[in-house]
Nucleic acid binder design. Sequence first.
DNA 1: CGGCTTTGACCCGCGC
DNA 2: GCGCGGGTCAAAGCCG
Length: 253
Amino acid sequence: MGNKSFFIDLNTNPLLHNINRSPIPRETLDEELSRMRKESKKLATTLTSLSEKYNSLQTHILELQQKYSIHEEDNSKLILSRKRKAEEEYCVNNSYINIEEASPKRPREITTNISTVCVKTSPSDQTSVVKDGYNWRKYGQKVTRDNPSPRAYFKCSFAPTCPVKKKVQRSVKDTSILVATYEGEHNHPQPSQAEITVPSVNTTDPTFLNKFMEDINTNSLQQQYLVEQMASSLSKNPSFAATVATAISGLLF
DNA sequence: CGGCTTTGACCCGCGC
DNA sequence: GCGCGGGTCAAAGCCG
Protein backbone atom coordinates (compact mmCIF):
# COMPACT_ATOMS: atom_id res chain seq x y z
CA MET A 1 0.00 0.00 0.00
CA GLY A 2 1.72 3.17 -1.16
CA ASN A 3 -0.08 6.47 -1.15
CA LYS A 4 -3.36 5.94 0.75
CA SER A 5 -4.83 9.37 0.13
CA PHE A 6 -7.19 9.60 -2.82
CA PHE A 7 -9.76 11.98 -4.19
CA ILE A 8 -13.50 11.27 -4.17
CA ASP A 9 -15.57 13.31 -6.57
CA LEU A 10 -18.89 11.43 -6.03
CA ASN A 11 -19.05 11.00 -9.78
CA THR A 12 -20.00 14.62 -10.22
CA ASN A 13 -17.61 14.85 -13.16
CA PRO A 14 -17.29 11.48 -14.91
CA LEU A 15 -14.81 12.92 -17.40
CA LEU A 16 -12.16 12.92 -14.69
CA HIS A 17 -12.17 9.10 -14.68
CA ASN A 18 -11.34 9.06 -18.34
CA ILE A 19 -8.45 11.40 -17.82
CA ASN A 20 -6.96 9.64 -14.83
CA ARG A 21 -7.03 5.97 -15.72
CA SER A 22 -4.63 4.67 -13.04
CA PRO A 23 -6.11 1.37 -11.78
CA ILE A 24 -7.68 1.40 -8.31
CA PRO A 25 -7.54 -1.84 -6.27
CA ARG A 26 -10.89 -3.62 -5.85
CA GLU A 27 -10.49 -3.66 -2.02
CA THR A 28 -10.16 0.10 -1.99
CA LEU A 29 -13.24 0.48 -4.14
CA ASP A 30 -15.25 -1.90 -1.94
CA GLU A 31 -14.09 -0.08 1.15
CA GLU A 32 -15.03 3.23 -0.38
CA LEU A 33 -18.40 1.90 -1.53
CA SER A 34 -19.13 0.67 1.96
CA ARG A 35 -18.14 4.00 3.44
CA MET A 36 -20.33 5.85 0.97
CA ARG A 37 -23.27 3.62 1.85
CA LYS A 38 -22.78 4.47 5.50
CA GLU A 39 -22.60 8.16 4.69
CA SER A 40 -25.70 7.84 2.53
CA LYS A 41 -27.51 6.18 5.42
CA LYS A 42 -26.37 8.95 7.74
CA LEU A 43 -27.60 11.54 5.26
CA ALA A 44 -30.96 9.80 4.97
CA THR A 45 -31.28 9.76 8.76
CA THR A 46 -30.42 13.46 8.96
CA LEU A 47 -32.97 14.30 6.29
CA THR A 48 -35.63 12.18 8.03
CA SER A 49 -34.90 13.96 11.29
CA LEU A 50 -35.03 17.34 9.55
CA SER A 51 -38.29 16.39 7.90
CA GLU A 52 -39.77 15.30 11.23
CA LYS A 53 -38.73 18.54 12.85
CA TYR A 54 -40.27 20.47 9.99
CA ASN A 55 -43.53 18.54 10.29
CA SER A 56 -43.70 19.14 14.03
CA LEU A 57 -42.97 22.83 13.47
CA GLN A 58 -45.71 23.06 10.88
CA THR A 59 -48.16 21.31 13.21
CA HIS A 60 -47.24 23.77 15.92
CA ILE A 61 -47.81 26.72 13.55
CA LEU A 62 -51.20 25.34 12.54
CA GLU A 63 -52.18 24.96 16.20
CA LEU A 64 -51.16 28.53 16.90
CA GLN A 65 -53.07 29.78 13.87
CA GLN A 66 -56.20 27.97 15.03
CA LYS A 67 -55.79 29.35 18.55
CA TYR A 68 -55.40 32.87 17.19
CA SER A 69 -58.40 32.68 14.88
CA ILE A 70 -60.61 31.33 17.69
CA HIS A 71 -59.40 34.10 19.97
CA GLU A 72 -60.03 36.73 17.32
CA GLU A 73 -63.57 35.48 16.87
CA ASP A 74 -64.24 35.67 20.61
CA ASN A 75 -62.80 39.14 20.80
CA SER A 76 -64.91 40.36 17.94
CA LYS A 77 -68.03 39.09 19.63
CA LEU A 78 -67.16 40.66 22.95
CA ILE A 79 -65.45 43.98 22.86
CA LEU A 80 -63.56 44.87 19.72
CA SER A 81 -64.90 47.40 17.33
CA ARG A 82 -65.04 46.35 13.68
CA LYS A 83 -62.10 48.54 12.82
CA ARG A 84 -59.78 47.12 15.42
CA LYS A 85 -60.81 43.57 14.60
CA ALA A 86 -59.86 44.11 10.98
CA GLU A 87 -56.50 45.51 12.00
CA GLU A 88 -55.65 42.58 14.26
CA GLU A 89 -56.64 39.98 11.70
CA TYR A 90 -53.79 41.12 9.51
CA CYS A 91 -51.36 39.31 11.75
CA VAL A 92 -53.20 36.05 12.34
CA ASN A 93 -52.24 33.92 9.40
CA ASN A 94 -48.80 35.15 8.57
CA SER A 95 -45.97 37.18 9.88
CA TYR A 96 -46.23 39.60 6.99
CA ILE A 97 -49.37 40.34 5.03
CA ASN A 98 -50.06 43.18 2.64
CA ILE A 99 -53.47 44.74 2.74
CA GLU A 100 -54.20 46.83 -0.32
CA GLU A 101 -57.26 48.55 1.00
CA ALA A 102 -57.77 50.57 4.13
CA SER A 103 -60.83 50.26 6.34
CA PRO A 104 -63.91 51.45 4.46
CA LYS A 105 -65.09 53.04 7.69
CA ARG A 106 -62.59 55.84 7.28
CA PRO A 107 -63.37 57.67 4.06
CA ARG A 108 -61.65 60.80 5.33
CA GLU A 109 -58.31 59.12 5.13
CA ILE A 110 -57.25 57.70 1.79
CA THR A 111 -54.66 55.15 2.86
CA THR A 112 -53.20 52.49 0.64
CA ASN A 113 -50.72 49.69 1.19
CA ILE A 114 -51.34 48.96 4.82
CA SER A 115 -49.08 46.19 5.95
CA THR A 116 -48.42 44.53 9.27
CA VAL A 117 -45.15 43.04 10.43
CA CYS A 118 -44.73 40.94 13.55
CA VAL A 119 -41.24 41.04 15.01
CA LYS A 120 -40.07 38.79 17.77
CA THR A 121 -37.92 40.63 20.32
CA SER A 122 -36.07 39.44 23.36
CA PRO A 123 -38.32 39.44 26.46
CA SER A 124 -35.97 41.85 28.24
CA ASP A 125 -36.27 44.38 25.42
CA GLN A 126 -39.04 46.77 26.47
CA THR A 127 -38.60 49.32 23.70
CA SER A 128 -41.10 49.72 20.87
CA VAL A 129 -38.46 49.98 18.20
CA VAL A 130 -38.78 47.92 15.05
CA LYS A 131 -35.64 48.45 13.00
CA ASP A 132 -36.57 48.33 9.33
CA GLY A 133 -33.90 50.45 7.76
CA TYR A 134 -35.89 53.69 7.76
CA ASN A 135 -35.68 56.58 10.20
CA TRP A 136 -38.83 57.28 12.22
CA ARG A 137 -39.97 60.15 14.41
CA LYS A 138 -42.27 59.27 17.26
CA TYR A 139 -45.21 61.66 17.47
CA GLY A 140 -47.50 60.00 19.94
CA GLN A 141 -48.20 57.17 22.31
CA LYS A 142 -51.50 55.82 23.52
CA VAL A 143 -52.68 53.04 25.78
CA THR A 144 -55.51 51.27 24.00
CA ARG A 145 -58.38 49.47 25.64
CA ASP A 146 -57.71 45.97 24.41
CA ASN A 147 -53.98 45.97 25.06
CA PRO A 148 -52.15 47.06 28.23
CA SER A 149 -49.02 47.77 26.22
CA PRO A 150 -48.92 51.32 24.86
CA ARG A 151 -49.21 51.86 21.11
CA ALA A 152 -46.51 54.10 19.68
CA TYR A 153 -47.10 56.28 16.61
CA PHE A 154 -44.27 57.05 14.21
CA LYS A 155 -43.90 59.16 11.11
CA CYS A 156 -41.13 58.70 8.59
CA SER A 157 -38.34 61.25 9.24
CA PHE A 158 -38.72 62.37 5.62
CA ALA A 159 -42.20 63.69 6.45
CA PRO A 160 -43.98 65.73 5.14
CA THR A 161 -42.38 64.61 1.88
CA CYS A 162 -42.86 60.96 2.83
CA PRO A 163 -46.40 60.14 3.97
CA VAL A 164 -45.60 56.80 5.62
CA LYS A 165 -46.77 56.20 9.18
CA LYS A 166 -46.07 53.33 11.50
CA LYS A 167 -47.88 52.05 14.59
CA VAL A 168 -46.03 49.75 16.95
CA GLN A 169 -47.64 47.80 19.75
CA ARG A 170 -46.77 44.65 21.64
CA SER A 171 -48.96 41.63 21.09
CA VAL A 172 -51.51 40.91 23.84
CA LYS A 173 -50.76 37.18 23.73
CA ASP A 174 -47.00 37.41 23.61
CA THR A 175 -45.44 40.66 24.82
CA SER A 176 -42.14 39.71 23.23
CA ILE A 177 -43.76 40.14 19.82
CA LEU A 178 -43.91 43.65 18.40
CA VAL A 179 -46.69 44.27 15.89
CA ALA A 180 -45.80 47.10 13.51
CA THR A 181 -48.47 48.44 11.16
CA TYR A 182 -47.25 50.46 8.20
CA GLU A 183 -49.46 52.85 6.28
CA GLY A 184 -48.46 54.11 2.85
CA GLU A 185 -45.35 53.76 0.75
CA HIS A 186 -41.99 55.42 1.10
CA ASN A 187 -41.27 57.83 -1.74
CA HIS A 188 -37.52 57.84 -1.09
CA PRO A 189 -34.73 55.27 -0.92
CA GLN A 190 -33.98 53.38 2.27
CA PRO A 191 -31.41 55.43 4.22
CA SER A 192 -29.66 52.53 5.96
CA GLN A 193 -29.70 48.89 4.90
CA ALA A 194 -27.32 48.08 7.73
CA GLU A 195 -29.91 48.60 10.41
CA ILE A 196 -32.35 46.06 9.13
CA THR A 197 -32.98 43.58 11.92
CA VAL A 198 -34.98 41.08 9.91
CA PRO A 199 -32.97 39.88 6.95
CA SER A 200 -34.43 38.95 3.60
CA VAL A 201 -33.54 35.40 2.65
CA ASN A 202 -33.07 33.98 -0.82
CA THR A 203 -33.49 30.26 -0.20
CA THR A 204 -32.65 29.41 -3.80
CA ASP A 205 -29.15 30.72 -3.24
CA PRO A 206 -26.76 27.74 -2.92
CA THR A 207 -24.67 29.67 -0.38
CA PHE A 208 -27.76 30.24 1.75
CA LEU A 209 -26.93 27.40 4.17
CA ASN A 210 -23.47 28.78 4.86
CA LYS A 211 -24.97 32.18 5.58
CA PHE A 212 -27.58 30.48 7.74
CA MET A 213 -24.91 28.75 9.83
CA GLU A 214 -23.10 32.07 10.32
CA ASP A 215 -26.32 33.75 11.36
CA ILE A 216 -27.09 31.01 13.89
CA ASN A 217 -23.81 31.79 15.59
CA THR A 218 -24.34 35.53 15.66
CA ASN A 219 -27.97 36.37 16.22
CA SER A 220 -30.64 34.38 18.03
CA LEU A 221 -33.50 36.52 16.69
CA GLN A 222 -32.35 36.06 13.17
CA GLN A 223 -32.03 32.36 13.91
CA GLN A 224 -35.70 32.10 14.77
CA TYR A 225 -36.69 34.05 11.69
CA LEU A 226 -34.45 31.98 9.46
CA VAL A 227 -35.83 28.73 10.87
CA GLU A 228 -39.31 30.00 9.98
CA GLN A 229 -38.05 30.89 6.52
CA MET A 230 -36.59 27.42 6.09
CA ALA A 231 -39.77 25.73 7.22
CA SER A 232 -41.74 27.85 4.80
CA SER A 233 -39.30 27.22 1.99
CA LEU A 234 -39.39 23.45 2.48
CA SER A 235 -43.05 23.48 1.60
CA LYS A 236 -43.04 26.25 -1.01
CA ASN A 237 -39.74 25.89 -2.82
CA PRO A 238 -38.97 22.43 -4.31
CA SER A 239 -35.36 23.33 -5.01
CA PHE A 240 -34.78 24.27 -1.39
CA ALA A 241 -34.91 20.64 -0.23
CA ALA A 242 -32.20 19.84 -2.77
CA THR A 243 -30.14 22.79 -1.52
CA VAL A 244 -30.48 21.53 2.07
CA ALA A 245 -29.44 18.01 1.01
CA THR A 246 -26.41 19.36 -0.82
CA ALA A 247 -25.40 21.51 2.12
CA ILE A 248 -25.84 18.68 4.64
CA SER A 249 -23.83 16.28 2.51
CA GLY A 250 -21.16 18.96 2.32
CA LEU A 251 -21.08 19.19 6.11
CA LEU A 252 -20.93 15.40 6.52
CA PHE A 253 -18.03 14.94 4.12
C1' DC B 1 -28.98 74.34 19.29
C1' DG B 2 -31.45 71.18 16.56
C1' DG B 3 -33.72 66.97 16.51
C1' DC B 4 -36.17 63.63 18.99
C1' DT B 5 -39.21 61.87 22.79
C1' DT B 6 -42.77 62.41 26.14
C1' DT B 7 -47.29 63.35 27.44
C1' DG B 8 -51.55 65.79 28.23
C1' DA B 9 -55.00 68.01 25.46
C1' DC B 10 -57.74 68.08 21.65
C1' DC B 11 -60.20 66.32 17.47
C1' DC B 12 -63.27 63.37 15.28
C1' DG B 13 -65.64 59.09 13.94
C1' DC B 14 -68.60 55.64 15.64
C1' DG B 15 -72.02 53.25 18.43
C1' DC B 16 -75.79 53.61 21.44
C1' DG C 1 -76.77 64.21 21.28
C1' DC C 2 -73.48 62.12 24.16
C1' DG C 3 -69.72 59.33 25.60
C1' DC C 4 -65.96 56.45 24.30
C1' DG C 5 -61.75 55.53 22.20
C1' DG C 6 -58.24 55.91 18.57
C1' DG C 7 -55.35 59.20 16.31
C1' DT C 8 -52.88 63.62 16.17
C1' DC C 9 -51.00 67.95 17.86
C1' DA C 10 -47.84 70.68 20.21
C1' DA C 11 -45.40 72.39 24.24
C1' DA C 12 -41.92 71.03 27.34
C1' DG C 13 -38.03 68.41 28.34
C1' DC C 14 -34.02 65.68 27.11
C1' DC C 15 -29.80 64.56 24.78
C1' DG C 16 -25.77 64.55 21.86
